[in-house]
Amino acid sequence: MKIIAVGMNYRLHCEELHAGEPVPEDPVIFMKPDSAILKDGKPFFIPDFCGQVDYETELVVRISRLGKNISERFARRYYDAVTVGIDFTARDLQRKFRAEGKPWELCKGFDNSAAIGEWIPVERLADIQNIRFRLDIDGKTVQQGNTCDMIFNVDRIIAYVSQFCTLKIGDLLYTGTPVGVGPVQIGNHLEGYLEDEKVLDFNIR
Rank of each mutant, 00 (worst) to 15 (best):
Q52S: 14
F88I: 07
M150Y: 06
P33R: 08
I86N: 12
D54C: 02
R98S: 11
L135G: 02
P183E: 01
I137F: 05
F45D: 01
N130G: 09
A99N: 13
N130S: 15
P27S: 05
R62N: 13
E56S: 03
S64F: 06
A114D: 05
N9S: 10
A5Q: 02
P47N: 09
F49I: 11
E191Q: 15
L93N: 04
V60Q: 03
K2T: 14
K32V: 01
Q129N: 15
R98L: 14
I204F: 07
F133H: 08
D127P: 03
D87R: 04
K96I: 06
A90S: 11
R65V: 02
N188C: 09
G67H: 10
I204L: 07
V28H: 03
P24M: 05
T175I: 12
D40F: 09
S71I: 00
R91S: 08
D26R: 01
G192I: 07
E25A: 13
L190E: 07
G182S: 02
Y160K: 02
G67E: 01
I158R: 01
L59T: 06
E105A: 12
K2E: 11
P183W: 11
R132L: 07
I3W: 09
D54M: 11
P47L: 08
E21P: 00
R156G: 00
L12F: 02
V199C: 12
R132T: 08
R11I: 10
G182C: 12
Q185Y: 15
E16R: 09
I186C: 08
K168Q: 12
L38H: 10
D48C: 04
N188W: 05
D48G: 04
T177F: 11
F88R: 08
L200M: 15
E123F: 04
G20T: 07
I158C: 00
D127G: 04
L172E: 07
E123Q: 14
Y174L: 14
G180Y: 11
H18T: 01
L172S: 03
G109M: 12
E195D: 14
V181I: 14
F164E: 04
L125N: 12
M1E: 11
S64N: 14
M1L: 13
V53H: 09
V53N: 06
L106V: 14
E195V: 03
F97P: 00
D111A: 14
P27T: 04
P178F: 01
I169E: 15
K68C: 00
W104Y: 12
L17M: 15
K108F: 13
